[in-house]
Write a protein that binds this DNA or RNA. Sequence first.
DNA 1: ATTATTTGACCTGA
DNA 2: TCAGGTCAAATAAT
Length: 254
Amino acid sequence: MRLIYGILRSYENSIVMMSLDQKTLKRSPETKRMDPSNNKKRRTSEKKTSEKVKICVGREQEGTSQLDDSFCWRKYGQKDFHGSKNPRGYYRCTHRFTRGCLAVKQVQKSDADSSCYEVKYLESHTCNGNLLSTTKHSISLFKEEERNRVPKLHHVREQSEDHVKSEELMLSLDDLENKKEIFKTFSFSNPETENTTGWKNLMENFSPTTTSESGITNELIYASSASVANSPTEDSCFSSLKNILDLSYDWSLM
DNA sequence: ATTATTTGACCTGA
DNA sequence: TCAGGTCAAATAAT
């Protein structure tokens, strides 16, 4: 384990260096403003090449209109529509400028059921692979404030190259299995959580990228049924996992 | 100080 | 002209 974390930290260090360089890709307000041909608002005329769209309905999360789908989104706009009571929020991947990730999503509160949000995904994430959706989803099931404390460990995976990903995928799955074993030993024993298929299905249900590969898909995750991730049992399960991850992370910083 | 959100202005296509 | 989408300055939050 120590070796693994050592390797991950090496990746992280090199990636930090890379991302420093990549920050130069960020929009420069000066250059935009100085450029006369760029009179005020520039607009990209290129159309969205991908029409991969996924519409989900999820649960409102405490105070935030942003559904937690495990990715880092940044809101860049909001629009009111006539005929719709609720405005639509426009989000893009936080890594848009650092890693050129074009993922975009639109979130709109459902008119019919204000406890639900309709989420439309446009473009898929290029800032990470499916691996990440696997690894990060285990994190996404935590409460937001808890998730924020969980770590760069996952960012390392996020930025790794393809040949590393498959390796890391195995690691992460091993990790999951290990964590599950640990739960069983000192936490509880739940037939549901021991069902690997159920576990994987749960993960897949929360993955925008893994389910959006084949054209348009509509997927409904109703708030009530989504409570599977919030049931007391699952909660305790994941908070245990989170504790372990936190421990691992802290230890890796030593 | 840095990062994220808000919000009015603006752009493009229908 | 309008609807939908995006930009970016101002503001808020961390």
